[in-house]
Design a protein around this nucleic acid. Structure first.
Lengths: 402, 402
DNA sequence: GGCACTTTATTCGCGGTTTGAATAAATCAA
DNA sequence: TTGATTTATTCAAACCGCGAATAAAGTGCC
């Protein structure tokens, strides 16, 4: 992914197209009010986008039920002919797929159960490429322009390299170029928590101003950090795998090889593993438990099983510590706790709040509003697809310019 | 402190003045090369600044010893008539003061030994105001335009309020307005670690690109975070008191009231206190040990005292964990460890490196280069004074515009 | 001194961008 | 048909940075 700084024009253009994807077709006035731009500027930008065939103007004006005085609005929408983008998330034993058109509307989505762990690099990329191609085929996608891929781990978004991922066996895998060659299309990569953060912020206007830290708890624990609605990019990777911050020196085993990582308490695999151990069952491998298995653990705990309650108590404490660290380091305006892990928020909350209180002063804690969202995992593909669409927009603009 | 976004012009102007303060008088060509601006733009900007009386052009051209072909450069420098700024740092029992002219050159500096802890809010502000006024007086400052004040703790830079500081007895102290009234001048506030980070980045060009996390270890442990050379601003406070991140649930007592904070291992007061306890001396209060006392502790450890070595070992481990958290959360390009605490870096290093290695994967660790700098505390006043000067520049520009 | 040469600084005009104000367009209501 | 009303476009002005041409200010050599 190219990462040049955007010219003023490009950034205005991006804001316009973002708004149109989020809100659906809008008239020029509405866009202007929405973005705080003068009608003249919107008109100018829109004229370009219409010229380029990216947008189309409504021919039959809107018949909205309000009062109908004045010249009617002509709404602008995305051209249908611009092709589509596939968004992919590679989980542990599951691949999520989504096909969207250039307007950002989902045309098809599905998931495939397929364990990816322990595959050789080449085989992995073959499987992924075949799965993506088959999905596009069966969804009747005419013209797939790009693929966006979100995955856990340390993802170098610029070069499309996965430095390490719990899902993959190998290190430093050039996944974007490997898939790109196989599919004949550009592949853009993103850390999965970053993709989730972006998708959530697209849906909640309030999270697009100031600083938003999005903590995704599920298969693992990831962090996506947004400043003014844009993903914070570190030196090389996007959202770091915050889950591998070690909070307890001699805590439980983590799948990264370390001990006492945030993940090793909070992630599904960790909770499930420790629950099994309580029942004196053989410790399972690190493969991910399904939603049913996790639901069963949560239900037993809610029923009052004291050993399980302890487990969630410890996990809540770790979550509180983690949020405390985020608050003290980033001072965000918003903290979003999301992902499947929120299913047990009721069990986590008491120790979560106690831990958070005990490590931050009230003034600091009051800074950030904490949102708990049961965001489903298919938001992930939405986030990465949105990012891919924006890159395509930019490419188109630069193509025209040259 | 007003925090409006800068117009393109204002930002160019700021870059020019920054460069001139850092590098001293420069000719227009040199400024252009330095900042990557066209000669035309520099000429235009310079003309404005000369008009406004902020800069002055050299009348007798430079006689540098190189080859003297071509039209000689006329260097630009700051007008002497623009007044000065006082920078202040309030430590535990020490006040650092610095008087600089508008060119950023230090005209006078001194420090006053004066315990500030346990003073009532009004008395504290009286003492500070008197100290500052006396310093300005005795330094022969003609025209002090503003005061920049750095202090430990949670400092709201926008409103000039100290939410909490280990130095102060009270909470939510409106220090900027209180001092401002007493002195009749605007007072700008900054967290001390932020001020240090800014000062260090002004001196090291490499730290001004990308992301730089500056960890200051001394009286306490603070964090200043820079993105492209500009201080990262959180929701309300500048650099957070990162030292109060709790790393060990049942660790030693911290002066914030908690336990196991980073500070409670690494700060001078903590190391000194624990060293005293080893010698079975009564546990001292939390007042800060002087440099001699700390030097003695370090010397004893270097001489091989095993209990003291353990102390530094534990502190190094905490430092490693802290840097690990920074790397995994912010993914900075540079990490600077600075402040008086670096005096014992040789003792900290083995456990520091081991802890860092054990909690980050190599790819991630390789991202950030770690610099250890024995930055003296009087850089603090330099940092806050620089920030104050920039605000004054901006005010002047906006005054002219209106 | 005068002329060539070299380097620095300024000026000028252009292209790109945003905006307020004026204008045009499209519709409804009476 | 006319007027009212709202939407969209056009136009002139301002701004910003820049390349190119030009002016300025010296040195060095004859």
């Amino acid at each position: 992914m190219l990462m040049l700084p955007l010219s003023p024009r490009e950034s205005a253009r991006r804001r316009l197209l973002d708004a149109l994807r989020r809100e659906g077709p809008m008239a020029r006035v509405e866009i202007g009010q929405h973005l705080g731009m003068s009608p003249a500027s919107v008109s100018e930008l829109a004229a370009n986008l219409l010229d380029e065939g990216i947008l189309v103007a409504e021919d039959s004006p809107d018949q909205s039920p309000g009062l109908l005085r004045g010249r009617p609005k002509t709404r602008l929408y995305f051209a249908e002919t611009l092709g589509s983008v596939v968004g992919v998330w590679t989980g542990f034993n599951r691949i999520e797929l989504r096909l969207v058109d250039s307007a950002g509307r989902t045309r098809a989505s599905r998931h495939v159960e397929r364990p990816l762990r322990n595959l050789e690099a080449e085989e992995l990329m073959d499987v992924l490429a075949r799965t993506i191609a088959a999905f596009a085929e069966e969804s009747g996608a005419r013209d797939v322009k790009a693929v966006g891929l979100a995955c856990q781990g340390y993802v170098d978004t610029r070069d499309g390299i996965v430095a390490w991922s719990p899902v993959l066996g190998t290190r430093d895998l050039p996944l974007a170029s490997g898939l790109g060659q196989r599919l004949g299309k550009p592949v853009l990569m993103e850390n999965d928590a970053s993709a989730m953060a972006f998708a959530i912020a697209q849906r909640h206007a309030g999270l697009r101003s100031g600083r938003t830290a999005c903590l995704m708890v599920g298969d693992g624990v990831g962090l996506g950090f947004l400043i003014q609605g844009e993903l914070y990019r570190g030196a090389r990777f996007g959202g770091s795998e915050f889950g591998h911050v070690r909070l307890r020196r001699s805590g439980p085993q983590c799948r990264c090889g370390g001990r006492g990582c945030i993940e090793a308490y909070l992630a599904d695999y960790a909770l499930h593993r420790d629950a099994q151990l309580i029942d004196h069952r053989p410790a399972p491998t690190l493969l991910l438990p399904g939603e049913e298995a996790m639901g069963a653990v949560v239900e037993q705990a809610r029923a009052g099983n004291p050993a399980l309650l302890n487990l969630f108590h410890a996990a809540g404490e770790v979550l509180g510590d983690a949020v405390g660290i985020l608050i003290q380091t980033l001072e965000p305006d918003h903290i979003v706790i999301c992902g499947p892990g929120t299913r047990a928020m009721d069990l986590l909350r008491p120790s979560f709040e106690a831990a958070l209180e005990s490590q931050t002063i009230p003034e600091l804690r009051a800074l950030a509003t904490i949102h708990v969202m049961e965001s489903s995992m298919d938001l992930l593909t939405e986030g990465v697809v949105m990012q891919a669409l924006r890159e395509l927009d930019l490419d188109l603009a630069r193509l025209k310019a040259a």
